[in-house]
């Protein structure tokens, strides 16, 4: 059992996208429960990949391909039944209206998911109303906003203002980041948190919702 799970984990780290499905099939055939395949195989591999990124052995292209490999394996694994991913919390993530730069959001998303959070990815150029309605519908604990342009960061303030006007019992925290966004700006617009890069974004989310649902 351990052997195939280790192979799945290694497959993620080594970015062997063509091999991942056959390994998942082998694991399922061996009657290993789906949760173990996910946690000890797929997720373990992605955590190891991010550790390599932290050590500057891997860079963004490697992290993206590791995540591609994980997602391919996960899609197949899901076809065998429900997986209890034991989400640490739910995050609605968007690049704000007027801005189409996706890279920052995608990297933070990969790292949040590897850290056990469920991320609802709304994509780029997303209207404030759509972001807020999605967060309410999904009962998200966090709204994460990204902007890479000085001209669109004002949309972050709009989301925070519109959210504050909503009469809802539990308001999600709003965290912000992106090339042009600073800690000072985040404080000015009353964001609940700011992060300058992806690993720090994970730490910020851990601090804000403490791994609780």
């Amino acid at each position: 059992m351990g052997n195939v799970l280790k192979q799945i984990s290694d497959c993620i780290v080594n970015m062997e996208e063509d091999e991942i499905e056959s390994l998942i099939q082998r694991a399922v055939k061996s009657e290993i429960d789906l949760d173990s395949v996910y946690i000890q195989g797929l997720k373990d591999g992605m955590v190891r990949a991010i550790e390599l990124f932290d050590k500057k052995i891997y860079h963004l292209p490697e992290v993206i391909v590791c995540a591609d490999t994980l997602n391919k394996g996960l899609n197949l694994l899901k076809s065998f039944g429900d997986i209890n991913k034991k989400s640490k919390g739910k995050i609605v993530f968007a690049v704000v209206k007027g801005d189409t730069h996706e890279i920052g959001k995608n990297i933070v998303k990969i790292m949040l998911e590897a850290s056990g959070y469920e991320v609802i990815d709304l994509g780029v150029n997303v209207d404030s109303t759509v972001i807020i309605e999605s967060a309410i519908k999904e009962e998200a604990q966090i709204i994460a906003l990204s902007s890479m342009m000085t001209t669109t960061m004002i949309e972050m303030e709009r989301v925070i203002k519109e959210l504050s006007e909503k009469n809802i019992k539990y308001k999600p925290h709003v965290i912000v980041g992106g090339g042009c966004v600073s800690k000072k700006y985040a404080e000015e617009i009353l964001a609940d948190g700011y992060s300058e890069n992806a690993p720090k974004a994970v730490k910020l989310v851990n601090r804000l919702i403490g791994g609780k649902k």
Partner: peptide, 12 residues
């Protein structure tokens, strides 16, 4: 190509 796709393609 899109940033994510271009970076992915560096390897793939």
């Amino acid at each position: 190509a899109g940033a994510t796709h271009l970076l992915r393609s560096i390897i793939k």
